[in-house]
């Protein structure tokens, strides 16, 4: 079995803070990490590899320093890594990103594509299904568990009310939840190996896609403006003992006709 796993390097958004005076994002010193859902997806792929034998290729699109998440994936047990990096990819929205990734995946051989459900910097959950459409293969999103019965992939998909069990034969794409399975740590051996394995670097010339569909040119959506949310005016804050605090809360709730 051949599996391609799409991963993304993201800023750890839980570490981002807002400068209370200027209202702007403080990005300095924010660590870059492998997107958590993608890491869950990689883990699922590696479990299939452990159980049935598979070749796992990781692919990412990003700046040259995104090499780091690929090394991490190799250290976890991936076999091959591809970095899509080219100025022609810059400014891509989700559709243009999915076109670039699909263009690269077209040149590979695979039975299964795995992606994270969504990235914590964009939270769109769009690129996975868009890749599936470009490649004309079925998708299953919100995957919490993935098994192979020798012929079909058996999938547990989370829903708002519970879950579904789905089956799909042949090539397909899954988008995976980080909560689906706890990712393994890199082994010391793996880390050493990761730097001995090559990361292939591909530009726009290397992939099978119309250049008009890449980067800013290939992006139907544009950011018209970006801004930090102004925090609303803070209310009164009391620093009193518990007894008095309860009195204040109750009188406020009465005033607001809540009780």
């Amino acid at each position: 079995m051949k599996i391609v796993v799409c991963i993304k390097q993201v800023p750890d958004t839980t570490e981002i803070k807002i400068n209370p005076v200027t209202g702007t994002l403080i990005r300095d010193g924010v660590p870059s990490i492998m997107n958590p859902d993608d890491k869950g997806g990689l883990e699922m792929a590696l479990r299939l590899k452990d159980a049935y034998g598979a070749e796992v290729t990781v692919i990412t699109m990003g700046p040259p320093q995104a090499d780091l998440v690929l090394r991490e994936a190799l250290a976890m047990g991936a076999d091959k890594a591809i970095l899509l990096t080219d100025r022609k990819f810059a400014g891509a929205d989700t559709l243009a990103t999915s076109n670039a990734l699909a263009g690269a995946i077209r040149t590979l051989k695979w039975d299964l594509i795995v992606a994270g459900r969504q990235a914590i910097d964009g939270d769109t959950a769009q690129v996975g299904p868009q890749i599936a459409e470009h490649l004309d293969i079925p998708q299953i999103s919100y995957v919490a568990d993935l098994q192979w019965d020798g012929q079909r992939f058996l999938v547990k998909k989370e829903t708002e009310e519970g879950y579904q069990r789905l089956a799909v034969a042949g090539p397909c794409l899954m988008t995976v939840l980080a909560s689906g399975c706890k990712a393994r740590y890199m082994s010391v051996r793996g880390i050493v190996d990761a730097y001995n394995k090559p990361v292939e670097i591909w530009g726009a010339d290397h992939i099978e896609v119309d250049e008009e569909k890449l980067g800013l040119k290939g992006s139907p959506t544009r950011v018209a403006k970006a801004f930090t949310k102004g925090l609303k005016q803070a209310g009164e804050v009391f620093e009193v003992d518990a007894e008095e605090a309860v009195g204040i809360i109750i009188s406020k709730l009465k005033e607001k006709f809540i009780i």
Binding site: L95, Q130, K157
Partner: peptide
């Protein structure tokens, strides 16, 4: 933006070759 809408809308945006903005 449910597990249905977030599965269907991106699939369609690629089929229709148009933009989609989430959430």
């Amino acid at each position: 933006a449910t597990t249905i809408g977030r599965d269907l809308a991106p699939r369609l945006s690629a089929r229709l070759e148009t933009g989609l903005t989430a959430d």
